[in-house]
Design a protein around this nucleic acid. Structure first.
Length: 157
DNA sequence: GCCAACGTTGGC
DNA sequence: GCCAACGTTGGC
């Protein structure tokens, strides 16, 4: 089983939106980056767990955990001219963009902020992709050790 | 294949 | 809202 981190801007879709969604499940649409697409299409598997990360907001950080309940399938929002993520170059016969479905496992009792994560960049979280300079990937792998550590500090404080 | 222009991401 | 870092596009 692999671990991931997936970013969302809480103004468009937050962990609380997910908590209120039917069956606490949603499709993770709108990824329009090839590296992230490749992971959603080829590597993210059913049963994998992912950190839900709030980006571009007042307190960026990890806010909870989701489980992958459906593996990569075509992102239909790319076919909809009305959709913000419409991509005329994505052909339904040969889809360019993919998504997965995620289900809420739990919301952390507190936000494990980016600021806090950075404190461990030199030791416990060294090599964590999220902390790499200029990192903009919206889907990224998380090592088992990093996964465990972030979980452990989510309980504390 | 190079690279300038442009668009996006995302922390601050 | 600013802007650095990055990705994509398109002319050549």
């Amino acid at each position: 089983m692999n671990h991931w981190l997936m970013k969302s801007e809480p103004e468009s879709f937050s962990i609380d939106h997910l908590a209120r969604a039917p069956r606490k499940t949603t499709c993770w649409d709108g990824v329009r980056n090839y590296q992230a697409r490749n992971m959603l299409r080829d590597e993210v598997k059913r049963g994998d767990l992912a950190f839900f990360y709030h980006s571009n907001c007042e307190l960026p950080g990890v806010v909870g955990i989701v489980e992958i309940v459906r593996e990569g399938y075509p992102d239909h929002t790319a076919f909809d001219p009305e959709d913000h993520h419409f991509d005329p170059q994505s052909d339904p016969q040969n889809p360019r963009w993919f998504m997965v479905d995620v289900k809420l496992v739990r919301k952390f009792p507190r936000v494990v902020s980016l600021r806090e994560l950075k404190e461990y960049a030199g030791n416990k979280l060294s090599g964590f992709r999220l902390l790499a300079k200029g990192n903009r990937l919206s889907v990224m792998p998380v090592s088992a050790a990093h996964w465990k550590f972030v979980n452990s500090i989510s309980e504390a404080k």
